[in-house]
Write a protein that binds this DNA or RNA. Sequence first.
DNA 1: AATCTATTGTCTCAATTTGTGACAATATTA
DNA 2: TAATATTGTCACAAATTGAGACAATAGATT
Lengths: 244, 244
Amino acid sequence: MSENPIPSKYAKTAKESGFLAHIAYDSVIFGFDGTTLKILISGYSNTKLFALPGGFVKENESLDDAVRRGLFDRTGLENIYLEQFHTFGSLERYIPATIEKIMLSNGHLKAGENHWLLERFISVGYYALINFNEVKPKPDELSDSCEWYPINELPPLMLDHHEMVQKALETLRGNINKKLVGANLLPEKFTMKQYQQVYEAILGENIRRTTFQRQILGLEILKRHEKQFLGKSHKAPFLYSFIK
Amino acid sequence: MSENPIPSKYAKTAKESGFLAHIAYDSVIFGFDGTTLKILISGYSNTKLFALPGGFVKENESLDDAVRRGLFDRTGLENIYLEQFHTFGSLERYIPATIEKIMLSNGHLKAGENHWLLERFISVGYYALINFNEVKPKPDELSDSCEWYPINELPPLMLDHHEMVQKALETLRGNINKKLVGANLLPEKFTMKQYQQVYEAILGENIRRTTFQRQILGLEILKRHEKQFLGKSHKAPFLYSFIK
DNA sequence: AATCTATTGTCTCAATTTGTGACAATATTA
DNA sequence: TAATATTGTCACAAATTGAGACAATAGATT
């Protein structure tokens, strides 16, 4: 979430901690498990609060690098596919009591104490596409869990994080034909059916098999490999990979 | 531009001035003069620098409202069509010497003095669509001009403002069929040819007249009115307006 | 008043893309 | 050997788009 990891329990101002005040990011990290589109959610067991993984920008680091750093911390992956989708700056999202609750429960704050994380934040939303099977998510300093949730079965999220997920999903849907979305959500080699399932999971609707296959092959972005034999009692599908 | 209007010459910190530190916005304000797509550019005559109109977010004001406030100050218009397109947070865009030059030349700063505007800013880019003929642009506190420039004849812009314009334009192009762009750039009543010219100006390419007319009419978003007689020696076109 | 010119509104037909179903070609099971 | 589920591909209909033709017409020219 926006108001997430604290580098030091004792830094009371952003400047002391080396971060830019008032600026956060939140990331909607998509993964595809073969059937369902999922996202990573941080949990705070003492508070029963859930949030998107997020963080802050160091004084001498770019916004993009800050997000990459946070994603690396959560997933261990570098070179993650990232897309910025919206920046959230309403007044309604400024609820310091929520952050305070988390920090108190984790011992990062004493009651009544001031802290820069309790100030107002504007948060930049990014979505990431990662290969579901390569990742063992790790919680950050403030949270105690970081787990996959199907996009249709999310827990109640703090602040405006649910709106963030919706906006990320809308953006992803709008980009599905522009940005080779499958290349980041699928393993190196995949069947046409798997690719179709990625589309269906993102769009939330069924796609006609023959039309999909014709269109995708028509783009000439796929290379065909050997067939995949899975022991199923039917014709084995070809495997594909993205060219280049 | 990002580092634009100063509420008081004497506030040395963001907090004293009532603004959120490190956060700015820049606006790409599009207008259509009947032929060309133009945007508003602020000029600083003493420095020969040019920039997008921008500003800062007050502590108790939403990001959107801050942008609306700035647009009202520049144009006198309320209820402007606004769309956020990207947030810029690279390290390269942090060049305090540029801001310092402007502030020194305008007497907003003494040499060697500290000022919160000289700190690093992350800027949220918005584009606006306004009716060109309704507006008499006004400069802000730091600039001494605010004028229309055709998008293909922009002066050299400071920092990453040229990149901002490109990104705004890309976003506008992507939204052209989703968001009823013409409704905000055209007068209440307009001809099909004018509408087509808006499309051509935004897309930067010629459009086939008959196909365009067929498609637009097929959307059933236009109401047809009386014909427009302009004294030209040919058939007079119908006027249209957007339904609702 | 008749003719000419530029532009508009609409239509037609070809070209392309998409929707829909059919069907043969398999891997495995029964 | 036959049955079953799925895949790859084709064929044809339906819809959309490209490209041009053409009549209508407001004013200018004669």
